[in-house]
Amino acid sequence: MHRLIIINPGSTSTKIGVFEDENLVFENTIRHTVEELKGFARVHDQLDFRKEIILKNLEVNHIVISEIDAVIGRGGLVKPIESGTYEVNELMLEHLRIGYMGEHASNLGGLLAFELARDIGCNAYIVDPVVVDELQPVARISGLKEIERVSIFHALNHKAIARRYAKVINRGYEDLRLVVVHLGGGVSVGAHEYGKVIECANALDGEGPFSPERSGTLPVGSLIKLCYSGKYTYHEMKKLLTGMGGMVSYLGTNDAREVVKRIKEGDEEAKLIYQAMAYQISKEIGAVSVVLKGQIDAILLTGGMAYDDLITEWIKDMVKFIAPVEVFPGEDELLALCEGGLRVLRNEEKAKMYFESEALAL
């Protein structure tokens, strides 16, 4: 039996879990107030603060850390890398501290895992960060030489659900062609071919279909005019596209449950916008299906919105001619991180190392 500590930091919370193999024996979400965090200028400045709270929480709940075999942290914004479980090393720590691909609370995942693992005397890992990039060369061409398409998506959940489905049908993930759709605050649609995501949009910047709070790909000419209209600064435009876009822009909320409630109460505008989101997601599924030449074993819908039968049925109705559609609601990130660590501890796969020379050599 393997015992693991899992750490998943968010902007105002730190989720921790303790697993014995795949069995969750302890879970807690530690909330951090704005008052507690306002004194930290940068994300990595919160490291000691969050570490102390985690250790106290484990102690109070009688978790004996000396019995832990590995600590797994949520992967942050490191350089683009292949999918897998990576051992935290000095270069990764440096890139997480400086925010190589940007500042985000998830950068603390690897840092916190390393700190705890060093105290315990075990290894620290991260699993499938959002910057997993396995695009084929042709997918990187944008149409403008100065801009290259990049892959930033919900890699952890994509990969975990793909593997889970493969296990259900008694096949290997590396033997399947799948389209995986994460339906959350952001939406990402990926073409999975034999264990690699060869096509996926940059969901962090809101590319692809619009989502509850992201604008999705917009008409370029109109977007340029808006950027130069004088109404918005650069940072205001970024927020407009990746926080105030999508459903928020039209309906003033990013909560799909509230939108469904409005629809049931007869709100026709809410129905139109919600249908439009399903329509765009379905179009994206069709687009990435072409990348796989229509040879698809299944289309998998996952994420928080996958709990809602209304949107999943709309999507199914539009794409079921392509391949069977299966629904895996939610995003159990703690379990997904645990599974990545267990694959290494059980010698089912080898932990990857994060190197400067290999970080972009995919």
Rank of each mutant, 00 (worst) to 15 (best):
residue 182 H to T: 02
residue 72 I to Y: 01
residue 113 A to D: 03
residue 222 S to Q: 15
residue 223 L to R: 07
residue 278 A to G: 07
residue 114 F to W: 13
residue 330 G to I: 10
residue 65 I to N: 09
residue 266 G to E: 01
residue 81 I to H: 06
residue 283 K to W: 02
residue 64 V to P: 09
residue 25 V to F: 11
residue 349 E to P: 07
residue 227 C to F: 15
residue 96 L to R: 12
residue 57 N to C: 15
residue 220 V to K: 11
residue 20 E to V: 15
residue 189 V to T: 04
residue 56 K to N: 14
residue 8 N to W: 02
residue 6 I to Y: 01
residue 322 I to H: 04
residue 360 L to D: 10
residue 78 V to G: 08
residue 232 Y to W: 10
residue 91 L to K: 06
residue 259 V to I: 06
residue 61 N to W: 04
residue 260 V to W: 13
residue 118 R to V: 14
residue 338 C to P: 05
residue 329 P to L: 03
residue 38 K to N: 12
residue 311 I to A: 05
residue 290 V to C: 11
residue 279 Y to N: 06
residue 234 Y to M: 15
residue 264 K to C: 14
residue 137 P to I: 00
residue 303 G to Q: 00
residue 155 A to P: 04
residue 236 E to M: 06
residue 31 R to F: 13
residue 161 I to V: 15
residue 91 L to I: 09
residue 43 V to F: 04
residue 173 Y to W: 10
residue 72 I to M: 00
residue 14 T to D: 00
residue 1 M to N: 14
residue 114 F to L: 11
residue 74 R to S: 04
residue 62 H to W: 13
residue 182 H to I: 00
residue 295 Q to D: 15
residue 308 D to R: 12
residue 127 V to T: 00
residue 103 E to A: 09
residue 192 H to D: 08
residue 55 L to V: 12
residue 58 L to F: 04
residue 118 R to E: 13
residue 336 A to E: 01
residue 331 E to N: 06
